[in-house]
Amino acid sequence: MSVVAIEHLQLALSGNQVLREVSFSLEEGECRALVGESGSGKSLTAMCLLGLAPPNAVLNAEQFSVMGQPLPAQGHRDWRGWRGRRIAMIFQNPMTALSPTRTIGAQLSECFRLHRNMDRRQARAESAALLERLAIPRAEQRLSQYPFEFSGGMLQRVMIALAVACRPKLLIADEPTTALDVTVQAEVLALLRELQHEQGTSLLFISHDLGVVANIADTVSVMYAGETVESASVASLLRHPAHPYSEALQAAMPRLHSREITVAIPGSPPDMRGTIQGCAFAPRCKHRMAICEDSPPLLISPRGAGVRCWRWHPDYPERWRLQHD
């Protein structure tokens, strides 16, 4: 049974279709990366998984479930049993994601008390143990310190502790390393990976950095303009990207052992305020064809990737000519 199953998730914010077509699934113990430019809808998808989409959002999905159970409506009170307990999230910037006026200990033990019904002393002991486990030195003293007394890397460890405190089935990490120093990034990634294996948690890892993704994820879903355009295994995506956008992303990735100049993607993402006709990437695509005026269906590439691009249609290329021919 998939831990997460999302099919045809759509979301409109004050009339603008921000998520147009999001589909992916996440198996138990799997780590799936959600990759795309900023504004492509990665974080919003994550927010939907926590029931925290903006109040004016209109959500629509064929399937939208976690552990086989359909999720409550956004903002519904039934979310109480889900958030923090079965689904947890790590935020991008640990410096701003903790209340500045409460101690780390207070915020951490609150989780234990809320979700595991511990008393004050138990929760504090558990918090200290957890911080210790996450390699935070002098954990006991650190509990009574405030967020501003921590470094960024330490704070992200605390955020991870907050997220894994109740052993959630699904852990969402929204660019957890972007705000950190490069040296700290690797440590945090290793820690996440370790915890994931230890607890058997499924991890949804949101990033715009294919390098980081290659390090941690098993599978990848690429998002573009509110649409998952390709879902594949990491290896397959990096070696043989099926969608032109994935291809462009892969080409834009800096490489250590190559003098090739990375290629930026020409053009800019579409304006989400209007309705998008056909393939959203078409205006920037070098393989653009006449058929791209119509939205491509979900197709399967020979290597098993799910991809939304007419080029993987069985009739390609016999039926359609490239537009610039």
Partner: peptide
């Protein structure tokens, strides 16, 4: 602010 979103994501709601 982020920390309110984060707190809600941890399941903290209502009075607390």
């Amino acid at each position: 602010s982020d920390y309110i979103l984060a707190a809600r994501a941890r399941g903290i709601s209502g009075v607390s």
